[in-house]
């Protein structure tokens, strides 16, 4: 579970750095990574806690990066004709 969290965390970091369009996917993957990382950290034996912690940290960083790319709160985006209109 820790390894999965680490992979999801790395993917969300990459998405957070590269694409506004894919940020929402990175955000969801990051949150799933945080859940898996925390569950793994809680239940895993001591020797496997390192990977779980790394997965948790990567997922938190990825989630924050993707969250910073999130555009708006309410509606309207489709009214504007897609993201292209914003940039």
């Amino acid at each position: 579970m820790g390894v999965v969290a680490l992979i999801l965390g790395i993917i969300s970091i990459v998405l957070g750095f590269t694409s506004v369009l894919f940020a929402w996917i990175g955000f969801i993957l990051g949150i799933i990574g945080i859940i898996l990382g925390t569950v793994s950290k809680k239940n895993a034996p001591i020797e496997k806690k390192g990977i779980a912690t790394a997965g948790l940290v990567c997922s938190i960083i990825g989630t924050i990066l993707c969250l910073l790319l999130y555009i708006a709160c309410a509606v309207y985006i489709n009214k504007l004709g897609g993201l292209n209109a914003l940039f």
Binding site: Y70, A74, N78
Partner: peptide, 29 residues
């Protein structure tokens, strides 16, 4: 969000990846 703004979403354009992603990106209730 999709339920309340049903009438503003153009479902004929939903297969257009950038339009689909723009709906996913913004819009929360």
């Amino acid at each position: 969000y999709i339920i309340v703004s049903f009438h503003t979403i153009d479902f004929s354009k939903i297969i257009d990846i950038s339009y689909l992603f723009s709906i996913m990106q913004g819009g929360f209730v």
